[in-house]
Design a binder for these strands. Structure first.
Lengths: 398, 398
DNA sequence: CTGATATGTTGCAGACGCAAACAATCCCTC
DNA sequence: GAGGGATTGTTTGCGTCTGCAACATATCAG
């Protein structure tokens, strides 16, 4: 039951206000008053409390824009930040991110082999110390981790991360011990969806689906009613394993005829005759190519993508579909083809309002996503920043 | 921004309390205090207000169960009800439902041809008058309609109801004029999902998927985080049109190789050699049959069902999958087969905790679902019962 | 009949947001 | 450049709501 005593009112209003500051990156008190529909005096008091907590600072009014008394601008403070950790098969990225989504410091540590879960805590702790010094010694409130695999929402256990070779890795508790901050973990594609919805292509849309193609496979995330859809245990969004063809090709999870077994980055690189290149180079090559073999492969893959997207449209009726990674490149190589195919794969009515867009956040995506995860408890309860134990409670849940 | 002035606290607490009374069907004040985590005195005041509004009545304490002062039992009042309207291809059902989900009066009007949208308002108004007399003249607060088709959430326009032959029917506004109550409309399978989640097989689970097989096709509904997932325009849950096979059989929506084109009630009736029978008879015949042709057809259909369910598990990670209509019969005819097939169609990890159940509400399903829709605004804002215009606002949205 | 237990009831205090009155600051116009 | 209008911050008082604590009430166990 969603009851509320009187104290929760303050918490909710602080949360709404801080969220507004975070999402806009800073706004005048007058604008915040408008955005929250609260009273001037109330906003004044709330901003005062947030400032006292060290979460925001009030700066001089911007250059005068109109008539009337200038309104001080409320911007995120620098002294409190969250950390982001993104372990991938070929690199580990660590970053410090402030409110407003500003990346204050980041370091990408290239790796020959996938990082083992056991070595991450020490690596993360040392790197965070460095970054903290670089950034002028802010206090790190929480640490968010974008895991390329299945993360159990209840306790943050990494059940399976095929491309890292992890199984049932208690990364969260190990990191908490090593870094001495509350740690939150979630699936990387789910966090990508959140990042794109807060700062990227799905900004302002309550119902969006993010579909990402990476070297490790295809994943995604769902926003339903403005809230990330996690599923009962946190495993939602595995679009790569939807059925698209009646064949026996099996994907990494052993499921036959799935999107991920038919649509791969490797096939594209092969027909292009390319080796290991980054996302931009792959897209440039795809767009430039007139080779019929390449076109055929692009069209073949787009056909399967359309099948999955059709299913997504029928089931979830999103307003925005955001394509990331090489899926965006596929769409760019054959403009309009995907949306054309969809007319035969999805019901006409839910297709009417669908917008297909490409991801906007590029290489910042997962850092922003992990930071967004880490910011969750702070935005939800700005009051509780003092006692960090209070932040340890919920992981990605609603 | 989800801010809240002080008055909304009262509203939220009243809502939580009334929702608890509704879902339990009646509870002692002590139990409500426990359920809401509110204070004894607060619950007392809130119950008093709900009683004054005519929504609940306090009855004598139940036969003494333990030590201590007996706690009066709070039960839904009879004087305020909602109406449910369920138009189907072969019948129109009208009912009055009280808080607590009790059906006070119902009438099923059999039809030879599907009802036209234009004739429904008069029919509904007349039948409601009759039922109201039968039930002792309660006040009807709202009317909920379970539409077998796509309903635009923003204004309740029926975009498409193939089995009724409707397209862009403004049923909501017509009904409001004829019946003089706020009208809320939603897709029937979505409402079935809600009904099963409140009073049926998915009770107590926040993440559930309902999959229904009817004579008109396959539909469903999603509960994510305890909230019905509507999608951006209200069209979510069309599982019948997910891709399951690489063939050209097209379903009613013109999409080829979908669940609905492969899995049909008619095929089952055909192999069984049956004519028009009800759900129970179909299931009995399926379970009893040892005909290899029947078994083969059942297995063929279950195979396709497994493909869609696998996709659902991968994408949504529900904890409970509720099967309704002839899909429940298919599962009953071959116990364990569906769950066995799933091991090859879904990822192992999200499959771990999945429970497959059958729907429990039977023929009451859509009446309860429509009533639940109609009760939504009342449960959300018990305060506003007096001014019925306040109820007219939101349709199915969260 | 008495004590223990559980719960309703009452009065009071704390917290909170809102409204209104007042002050500050900027733009615009004459 | 002085005054008016407009917008917004600030302060104060008030109403509402919930929690708490003390007291009252009703049942059970013996």
């Amino acid at each position: 039951m969603d009851t509320s005593d009187k104290r929760s009112v303050r918490v909710r209003n602080l949360s709404a206000l801080l969220t507004a500051v975070h999402r806009t990156g800073g706004a005048s008190r007058a604008a915040l008053t408008l955005a929250t529909t609260l009273n001037r005096s109330t906003v004044g008091a709330l901003v005062g409390e947030l400032a006292e907590l060290g979460l925001v600072v009030e700066t001089q009014p911007a250059e005068s824009g109109g008539v009337g008394r200038p309104s001080p601008v409320v911007v995120p403070a620098d002294g409190l930040v969250v950390a982001a950790l993104v372990p991938e098969a070929d690199a580990v990225t660590v970053a410090l991110v402030g409110l407003g989504g500003r990346i204050l410091a980041r370091r990408r540590i290239a790796r020959d082999a996938p990082p083992r879960a056991e070595e991450l805590p020490a690596l993360a702790a040392a790197t965070l110390d460095d970054l903290r010094r670089e950034a002028g010694g802010p206090r790190i409130l929480t640490l968010g981790v974008a895991v390329p695999g299945l993360v159990r929402a209840s306790d943050g256990l990494v059940r399976l991360a095929p491309h890292l070779g992890w199984r049932d890795a208690p990364l969260g508790s190990m990191l908490e011990k090593a870094c001495d901050v509350p740690v939150l973990l979630a699936n990387d594609a789910t966090l990508g969806a959140i990042a794109e919805s807060v700062f990227g292509a799905a900004r302002g849309h309550a119902d969006a689906v993010y579909l990402n193609g990476g070297s490790s496979g295809i994943g995604g995330g769902i926003l339903a009613g403005g809230v990330p859809l996690t599923g009962s245990a946190g495993y939602a969004g595995e679009f790569g394993h939807t059925h698209v063809a009646d064949d026996d090709k099996r994907d990494a999870a052993g499921v036959p005829g799935t999107l991920e077994s038919e649509v791969t980055r490797e096939s594209l690189l092969r027909v292009l005759g390319l080796g290991a290149v980054d996302a931009d180079a792959l897209e440039a090559a795809l767009v430039a190519s007139a080779d019929p073999v390449v076109l055929a492969e692009v069209d073949r893959q787009l056909d399967y993508v359309a099948t999955t997207v059709g299913t997504v449209v029928n089931i979830l009726n999103p307003q925005v579909l955001v394509l990331g990674g090489f899926l965006a490149a596929l769409d760019a190589a054959r403009p309009g083809r995907l949306t054309g195919l969809l007319r035969d794969r999805a019901m006409a009515v839910p297709l009417e309002a669908l917008e297909v867009r490409r991801a906007e956040l590029g290489s910042d995506l997962l850092v922003i996503g992990a930071a967004e995860l880490a910011l969750g408890p702070i935005l939800a309860e700005p009051n509780a920043v003092a006692g960090r134990d209070a932040l340890r409670a919920g992981r990605l849940r609603r």
